[in-house]
């Protein structure tokens, strides 16, 4: 009796209780409509916080609008903001500083990241410990990294200068990593490489681990040397992952602001003033909202265009 009463009750209840109104409405909808229902909140959110601001920024970029002077009549400037940005030598200097930063950080991070991934891929004693140690820098906040590297680079008390002095025998206070014009661009490259090489390493490691062992076994059978295996198997198969890492780091470093701003504030002079720092100064310190909107659009188009071309190349590599 007891055994059968439960299911009966459930069935009875199920039969007796009418479907709730929402469920009834959903039941009447097509699959497509339900799909729309689910993605609508996300689309609305994207429209509100991504698409609308983008369109608004494009509109502002053709005006003289200043957010700190909302009462000044809005004047349509046409392409004036764009032409003055493209003709401004200071903007080109910032773009040059950005290009130097992006190119060198990517190059060094890929080299060191891939090298570390090859090392970490081998099983050795303390493997997990060293992996964790290597990953630590990327887990830190850029604000923290910027601040403590400022101390490390301090010519009188900084550890970095003392290490260099110990290794080379020069006076530790004879050079200033973030104060000397020739050294400052390399100081920010060094810190970014230190921080983000582990990230590239992780992506490369995922690529290395995705290569099936049997390919290497077949190469061994064919008596391919380790060098030959690296060039013919490892590198081609990791290449899409490497390219992905380059894409991510390229986009990130093109927008780099926080770490560099804390380290150098764009100085000495304007030596390390990256495009994002110039943009921030124009937008939120000088309050030239229309001008900075145009600058932001130029940067956006540059990154978006370059990333699109790059993704197409990446797809081609993948299809090979």
């Amino acid at each position: 009796m007891t055994d059968t009463s439960g299911p009966v009750v459930i069935r009875d209840r199920a039969g007796a209780v009418p479907a709730p109104p929402v469920a009834r409405v959903i039941r009447g909808l097509s699959d497509r409509a339900i799909a729309w229902l689910f993605i609508a909140p996300t689309i609305l959110l994207l429209l509100a916080i991504n698409v609308f601001p983008l369109i608004w920024t494009i509109r502002l970029s053709f005006t003289n609008y200043r957010a700190n002077k909302p009462n000044v009549p809005l004047r349509w400037l046409g392409l004036e903001n764009y032409t003055s940005i493209l003709a401004d030598p200071d903007v080109w200097q910032a773009m040059q500083a950005t290009a130097h930063f992006v190119i060198w950080t990517i190059l060094l991070e890929v080299l060191f990241g891939f090298g570390l991934a090859l090392l970490i891929d081998k099983k050795f004693r303390g493997h997990s410990f060293w992996t964790t140690v290597i990953l630590l820098p990327m887990m830190l906040s850029p604000a923290v990294v910027g601040t403590f590297w400022t101390f490390l680079f301090q010519p009188q008390i900084g550890l970095f200068n003392y290490v260099v002095a110990f290794l080379t025998g020069i006076d530790p206070s004879s050079f200033q990593m973030i104060g000397d014009v020739p050294l400052a661009p390399w100081a920010i490259v060094l810190v970014d490489t230190w921080m983000w090489t582990p990230y590239v390493m992780l992506i490369c490691l995922a690529g290395l681990r995705s290569i099936p062992n049997y390919i290497y076994e077949a190469a061994e059978v064919d008596r391919a040397s380790k060098w030959r295996q690296f060039w013919s198997i490892t590198l081609p198969m990791v290449l899409p992952f490497l390219m992905l890492a380059v894409l991510f780091r390229g986009i990130e470093n093109f927008k780099m602001f926080d770490m560099v701003n804390l380290l150098t504030s764009g100085g000495p002079g304007s030596t390390t003033e990256l495009a994002s720092i110039t943009l921030k100064r124009e937008a939120f310190e000088k309050w030239r909202t229309g001008y900075s909107s145009a600058f932001a659009i130029i940067l956006f188009v540059t990154v978006f265009g370059a990333a699109n071309i790059y993704v197409k190349a990446l797809n081609k590599v993948k299809q090979r």
Partner: peptide, 20 residues
Amino acid sequence: YAELLLDMQKRVHDYVVADK
């Protein structure tokens, strides 16, 4: 004033500290 100040910051720092 903020614009005027930032302009001066840039030009003076460029000359005094960055030797430009």
